[in-house]
Amino acid sequence: MKNIAVIGAGTMGNGIAHTFAQSGYQVNLIDISKESLQKGLDTISKNLDRMLAKEKITEADKKATLKNIQTFIDIPSGVKNVSLVVEAATENEDLKLKIFEQLDSNCDEDTILATNTSSISITQIASKISNPSRVIGMHFMNPVPVMKLVEIIRGYNTSDKVTKTIMNLSEKLGKSPVEVNDYPGFVANRILMPMINEAIETLYTGVAGVYEIDTVMKLGMAHPMGPLQLADFIGLDVCHSILEVMYNGFKNPKYAACPLLTNMVHAGKLGVKSGEGFYDYSENRKAEKVSNQFS
């Protein structure tokens, strides 16, 4: 398995492409526009420069990694003759289902089809594939080149062979794969998102402010990042989408998104990606606390 396709050049997609390319795989990076692809490549280059500055790689390593990546603006061309496709598009069920319908029509019969979804049912995605046994979840953590964990999610029909292949492949990437079963939120987000939601609820009900909540969790619970800052880093829209998937999947009110989170998403305050969430990430504030509406 040397030829890989990655669908989506955003935060997760470019990180996945970077990781495979740095490990010597030939990567076809696919997105809907040349602009999106160039932005993804620029991010990969900047991340490689950071690694270079820390002397974790050499200049030759950087050049080899970038050389291993080709870009495509359509799925049929991008998935031709690949052994594995990793879909890393926006966390939207309808979009992912449409992508997998295209993959079923354009990929070889033995191509493994993986999705980087953080919450959507692997079994549901696989329902669009004539042979659902080759569909699996491959949930990388952000930032992909740094984080070791990969949740390997078995759908109802995922074969033992495909599961073993992806577990072994993850180890070859220098990752630590953990096999889990296909239920809403899997393990990582089933535990993480209610905690983040509860932190937002704690803020919403006036128990404490942003800085105070994050400080309690960092200093008292040894979390490297507070839950509100982590929500900003993940993207508040992504957090909201995951909570919706779990709420709809379990029909349990404990997974209902806090009204404050919903309002912030509607207002476009999505965290780092929009420049403001629970913290302000604009150039003049440098991620200082947003003081007015939360203090």
Results as ranks from 00 to 15, higher is better:
residue 69 I to K: 05
residue 7 I to P: 00
residue 160 D to Y: 01
residue 178 V to A: 13
residue 44 I to Q: 00
residue 250 F to N: 05
residue 146 V to H: 02
residue 155 G to T: 06
residue 99 I to L: 15
residue 53 A to T: 02
residue 181 N to V: 09
residue 220 G to W: 05
residue 115 T to S: 15
residue 215 T to D: 11
residue 34 K to G: 10
residue 165 T to I: 07
residue 25 Y to I: 03
residue 178 V to P: 03
residue 47 N to C: 08
residue 221 M to N: 08
residue 78 G to Q: 11
residue 234 I to W: 00
residue 215 T to E: 14
residue 19 T to I: 04
residue 2 K to Y: 11
residue 123 T to M: 08
residue 190 R to L: 08
residue 178 V to F: 06
residue 157 N to E: 14
residue 14 N to S: 14
residue 84 L to P: 00
residue 27 V to M: 01
residue 291 S to Q: 14
residue 70 Q to L: 07
residue 227 P to H: 08
residue 113 L to H: 05
residue 100 F to M: 07
residue 258 C to H: 09
residue 208 A to K: 08
residue 107 C to I: 04
residue 269 K to Q: 15
residue 97 L to Y: 04
residue 87 E to M: 09
residue 57 I to W: 13
residue 107 C to D: 03
residue 225 M to R: 11
residue 40 G to L: 07
residue 73 I to H: 02
residue 279 Y to R: 09
residue 190 R to T: 09
residue 59 E to F: 12
residue 177 P to G: 01
residue 53 A to M: 07
residue 258 C to T: 13
residue 25 Y to P: 06
residue 275 G to Y: 08
residue 202 T to P: 14
residue 9 A to P: 02
residue 14 N to R: 14
residue 282 S to N: 13
residue 265 V to W: 04
residue 31 D to S: 15
residue 65 T to P: 11
residue 180 V to S: 02
residue 4 I to L: 11
residue 156 Y to I: 09
residue 277 G to T: 02
residue 245 V to I: 12
residue 245 V to R: 00
residue 124 Q to N: 14
residue 50 R to L: 11
residue 196 I to P: 13
residue 70 Q to N: 12
residue 176 S to L: 03
residue 139 H to G: 05
residue 66 L to P: 03
residue 26 Q to N: 14
residue 222 A to W: 08
residue 244 E to C: 06
residue 8 G to E: 03
residue 62 K to I: 01
residue 257 A to P: 01
residue 70 Q to Y: 00
residue 95 L to Q: 15
residue 93 E to D: 08
residue 103 L to V: 04
residue 286 K to F: 01
residue 11 T to W: 06
residue 274 S to A: 06
residue 129 I to Q: 09
residue 284 N to E: 15
residue 255 Y to V: 03
residue 262 T to N: 12
residue 140 F to A: 04
residue 185 G to K: 08
residue 116 N to I: 00
residue 90 T to H: 10
